[in-house]
């Protein structure tokens, strides 16, 4: 099993084979994982940690967690990339919460960094267009939910708004994403 997958590893490795190799702690598979997925993982970690220094520590721990939990992955229920992002997000949120890193007003930082070209690297122009089609409020809600891990009720309480209003705005933001995506 390992040999066949290793032969293909130079170019492309199917998800299932990659997961098998990672479970066996194959060194080349680890490098493949890093080379192909680290920008997505680091992007999420950086947005959640909101500081390069904190992100560096969390990033390493997220990779460790991915490897530790690789046996949980089931390709029948989820795509590997989605699973990877889910683990990266939940681990980073948990570590940030445990260590008390501050996550103040991420939306403003997103806007600023995107404008400065700091965030986004592989498809900066496309990403920028995609983001620019969202209004600041929509980005704000998506950030609060995805990158700060807040629930509708927590957002409502934090910003002193009715939960139903928050819920509708969050749904509206996702609808806009869907429209932009299709």
């Amino acid at each position: 099993m390992a040999n066949t997958a290793k032969e293909k590893i130079q170019d492309h490795i199917p998800e299932e084979a990659l997961v098998g190799l990672l479970r066996g702690k194959d060194q080349k598979a680890l490098e493949y994982l890093y080379d192909h997925y680290s920008p997505a993982v680091f992007g999420i970690v950086l947005r959640i940690a909101n500081s390069e220094k904190a992100a560096e520590k969390i990033f390493k721990e997220v990779f460790s967690e991915i490897l530790k939990r690789i046996t949980e992955f089931n390709h029948k229920t989820e795509k590997f990339f989605d699973w990877l992002l889910r683990i990266a997000r939940s681990t980073a949120l948990e570590l940030v919460s445990k260590r008390g890193f501050k996550q103040n007003n991420l939306s403003d930082i997103v806007q600023l960094k995107v404008q400065e070209g700091i965030l986004g690297n592989s498809e900066p122009a496309v990403s920028r267009d995609f983001l620019n089609n969202l209004n600041p409020e929509q980005k704000h809600y998506l950030d609060l939910i995805y990158f700060q891990g807040l629930t509708i009720d927590q957002i409502a309480e934090k910003f002193n708004q009715p939960a139903n209003t928050v819920r509708n705005k969050a749904k509206g933001a996702l609808h806009m994403l869907k429209a932009l995506h299709s």
């Binding site: 920008p39 997505a40 992007g43 999420i44 965030l119 983001l131 969202l134 994403l177 932009l180």
Partner: peptide, 9 residues
């Protein structure tokens, strides 16, 4: 796709 906008090497 939104999350991937924040990809960073």
């Amino acid at each position: 796709k939104y999350v991937m906008c924040f990809e960073k090497t």
